[in-house]
């Protein structure tokens, strides 16, 4: 039976090729190169630092962070998990993966939070942004690996760029959601006392949306980790590369080691960021406080004078 493609076929592949190869690549090469610079810088710096820290020291630090923000249980788990990672011999790759993930998440936050704020402030912008986010979340990452390679080449940085594209939507969506769900009467009160829009954002909206934004950050982190293997296809290193190489050589042992490393890293990071997000439900600390909580180790006991009312 006749079907349309028998008589005519849309040369979509030719069009795309023409646009990317014929127009984007030659005309915007400098731009695409420039975009890579900050990412490469941050990545290399982080990787260098993480590789330089001795394993026991790093483990100790992460265990203490886990203890401070979450529980003793998580601290114990972190200790065991990191020890296993080291014992199966994938420590350097784990650190590389961690550097990649952190870089990707950092840039996701830098790009995503302002976009989320803009979306929360302008309905029109949100309307335009939503389909873009839907596309970003539904397109299989393999589809955009090819254009990324065309535009950025192969290597670590293009891998991270792919990761950023894949992991960006949740933080935008949840920043938007968080700011939109700040009660209207608080916004009204802030304006009634003469706040400028900027003051409303910093004094009221962002602090109150922080918990939701943290949930978005957690989601972004998890998505970034899930890209670790895929990014290895275009030359990213770390644990993903072990899995990918294992796959190519049907080396099931090596692939398992890499996979186990990714799973353990994911669990540790997930629990720690979740604890950071949920902690603020009970104490609702300010923006700065929570940011500090990332770096600071606090006594897990009740602060003096709180009367011991908090339920542990």
């Amino acid at each position: 039976m006749w079907q349309p493609s028998d008589s005519f076929e849309i040369p979509l592949d030719v069009w795309v090729e023409t646009v990317i190869k014929g127009w984007l690549v030659p005309n915007f090469r400098d731009l695409f190169q420039a975009v890579q610079v900050p990412i490469t810088t941050v990545l290399e710096g982080l990787d260098l630092a993480l590789q330089a820290i001795p394993m026991p020291l790093f483990t100790l630090a992460l265990v203490l962070v886990a203890w401070a923000v979450a529980s003793r249980g998580l601290a114990l788990f972190t200790l065991v998990a990191l020890a296993v990672v080291d014992l199966i011999g994938v420590w350097p790759q784990t650190m590389t993966t961690l550097a990649m993930i952190l870089t990707a998440v950092l840039f996701c936050a830098i790009v995503g939070v302002p976009l989320g704020i803009a979306a929360a402030r302008r309905d029109g912008f949100e309307k335009g942004l939503r389909p873009v986010l839907d596309i970003m979340q539904t397109i299989p990452p393999f589809v955009y690996l090819v254009p990324i390679v065309m535009l950025f080449g192969v290597g670590m940085t293009p891998g991270i760029i792919a990761t950023i594209i894949f992991a960006l939507p949740p933080i935008i969506r949840l920043t938007n959601l968080g700011i939109r769900s700040v009660p209207e009467d608080l916004i009204e009160a802030a304006y009634a006392f003469g706040s400028s829009p900027r003051q409303v954002l910093w004094e009221v909206q962002l602090p109150l949306a922080l918990r939701t934004i943290m949930a978005g950050l957690n989601q972004t982190l998890m998505l970034a980790l899930s890209m670790a293997v895929i990014a290895a296809l275009i030359g990213a290193g770390g644990l993903g590369l072990i899995v990918y190489t294992g796959l190519g050589r049907l080396d099931v042992g090596a692939a398992t080691e890499g996979g186990l490393g990714i799973v353990l890293l994911a669990m540790i990071l997930d629990r720690i960021t979740q604890a950071l997000g949920s902690e603020s439900t009970t104490k609702s600390p300010g923006l700065l406080e929570t940011l500090k909580a990332f770096f600071r180790i606090r006594a897990p006991a009740n602060p003096p004078g709180s009367g011991g009312q908090s339920v542990s």
Partner: peptide, 17 residues
């Protein structure tokens, strides 16, 4: 709004954070 007019709200509208 800063200097002359202040407002008190029905549901208090205090900043919880």
């Amino acid at each position: 709004r800063l200097e002359k007019i202040a407002m008190v709200f029905q549901h208090f509208a205090l900043f919880p954070h």
